[in-house]
Write a protein that binds this DNA or RNA. Structure first.
Lengths: 341, 341
DNA sequence: ATGAAAGCGCTAACAT
DNA sequence: ATGTTAGCGCTTTCAT
């Protein structure tokens, strides 16, 4: 049978109120009583009933804070949708959300947002802005006040967040290599475009790609790794130059950066369909490129799921005391071609 | 503010019991009172609180029946996992499951299982066995008794099920064609293997494949559509024969049927890695084939999600009165290569 | 430090 | 036909 607080109380010879205090780490219980109750809880394998808890919370709903870049950033749209799905499921369980949209270039804003939310008494925070010392300090500040934080999409490493939910960048590079290996002949030449190799996140995909090629016996040759700094002009100029220099180019892997620039260069060189192109994410230039048959594949790591899971993990942690299964939760890697859209 | 039954009762000048009767279509309410209450419900945009409902149901938990092929069938493992995830989420909301594993070749067993579950008083049924007249009659029988049925993985067309959750077979054929078009040269020759062209389900993938080729300007030639009848021997013999007859073959699309047979024929002909091979699902022979680099791609339509969504749709229907968004709910189509496993 | 009791929104058994 | 009331399991306030 399901074991309830009432049952625990009876066995321990105390009232339900006391059991509740113990279960929720509230003060005012003699240590020996607390221990006795805890041992009974463990023995009987007590698990709180979510519905009952939720109902009791209706008076004072739990609030979760969400700190992320502004609405305009298209990439985050899918993530927001996923958050919305989870929020819908959790609505009746007494959960409310509090959004803070902050500039993803300025750590100050993000750090301040976290502190504000903690002061405001939120029960947990989802965070995705950037990895920075200031942010790390804020996360630890929250952690000290027992406010759990889940980072999503981009991690803040070495911080006291309970979990990161996002993509496995190295793996997406490996998959890109796998695709290139299947669509290009042996000895074909490829270009890799990334943002800035100083950033760990940007390097990961490139490293994954190279490892993927190596595991296939390095049948393809990487001519050059272009740093486009996520800017259209830099990317365009360098790609243009590289295409001029290598008329026998086989393919381009757009690991990070401006996909529009890549598409435009290919059009300018009238190489539509002649080069194999692999990029990431389902953002509009990628979708257009796929439809125009300029891009062959785009690799996606389920951003909707990232949003959904982050909130769900936070909820399960706060409400059911569940620890995340692992510190890193990677969403599945999927390959899209125009037919699969 | 959240509007509750109490509020409705006050506005209608009746008791909460009466409102509850109306809301749950139970008899014993004067028509005019019922109408008055319903109009207030609509006006105030009343939505029942799931947590409260769930709590009240703890005494007599809702039971959902699940009718599917036996545990041994590997393909269904992922679906069962998905059902498990949903069940876990719904456990505290007062939901229990009642499984009936039946032979997927015999409609009698499936039809009987449905009737038994209805008699036993389940609140909804998930069904996946086969499309048959006997089954259809049982589904309609359940529907008449207000027991909603969701079919999953394989539909029972023209029946009174509230929704089908599964793959879009035509689309998976289209995607297969898209892949072949990307990995093969123009004018390459391909074979298609299916189970039995008499079955609508088996035909769909083949038709999708042909349409996909057509939309690319028919650059590839389909030499033959082999019917393997899902048997190893038939598939092996015909493929073996076709490979002998066509030394210049470019690729094989295993739309339906025994993947192991295909892999073995390729090994026998020492064509590992020389033919491009696309198949479906993440079952063990496909995974092995991918790892051995004999199969290039396998197309998957998220069976885990099929299980999860079927139960969730049923629950939302029964518990929150939600209608499925559409009669067919297709899960996403994904492409796997060994690197993405 | 602990117990008792009210209440979260809904259902269902029992009264009228 | 309709009203009343006792739970469902947990939290929280108010007594003690």
């Amino acid at each position: 049978m399901t074991v309830t607080i009432r049952e625990i109380a009876k066995q321990a010879g105390v009232s339900r109120g006391t059991v509740d205090r113990v279960l929720n780490d509230r003060p005012g219980v003699k240590p020996e009583v607390r221990d006795r109750i805890l041992s009974i809880v463990a023995e009987l394998n007590y698990v709180p009933n979510i519905a009952a808890k939720a109902l009791a919370y209706q008076k004072k709903p739990l609030v979760f804070g969400i700190v992320m870049p502004p609405q305009e950033i298209q990439f985050f749209e899918a993530i927001r949708n996923g958050i919305g799905v989870a929020a819908e499921e959790l609505k009746d369980l007494g959960v409310r959300l509090e959004y803070r949209f902050v500039d993803n270039k300025s750590p100050e804003e993000g750090a301040a947002a976290i502190r504000e939310l903690v002061e405001a008494g939120v029960s947990g925070i989802m965070f995705s802005v950037m990895d920075d010392e200031l942010i790390r300090a804020s996360i630890d500040y929250a952690a000290e006040r027992a406010v759990p934080i889940v980072t999503f999409n981009s991690d803040v490493e070495l911080s006291k967040r309970i979990c990161f939910v996002g993509q496995d960048l190295h793996k997406s590079g490996m998959v890109a290599a796998g695709l290139m290996n299947r669509v290009l002949q042996a000895n074909a030449k490829v270009l890799v475009v990334t943002g800035n190799l100083k950033f760990h996140a940007h390097r990961s995909r490139v490293e994954g790609f190279k490892q993927g090629l190596a595991e296939h016996g390095n049948k393809l040759e990487v001519l050059q790794v272009i740093e486009g700094f996520d800017r259209y002009a830099d990317t365009y100029l360098q790609l243009d130059c590289a295409l001029n220099a290598n008329p026998d180019l086989g393919g381009i892997y757009m690991a990070t950066g401006d996909i529009g620039a890549c598409v435009d260069v290919i059009k300018h060189h009238k190489q539509e369909g002649k080069l194999r192109v692999v990029c990431n994410d389902l953002i509009s230039p990628a979708i257009l490129g796929l439809r125009e048959r300029i891009i062959d594949f785009t690799i996606v790591q389920n951003p909707e799921r990232q949003g959904y899971l982050s909130l769900r993990i936070l909820f399960d942690h706060v409400f059911a005391g569940k620890q995340p299964e692992s510190e890193h939760h990677y969403t599945e890697t999927h390959i899209y071609i125009p037919e699969s859209l």
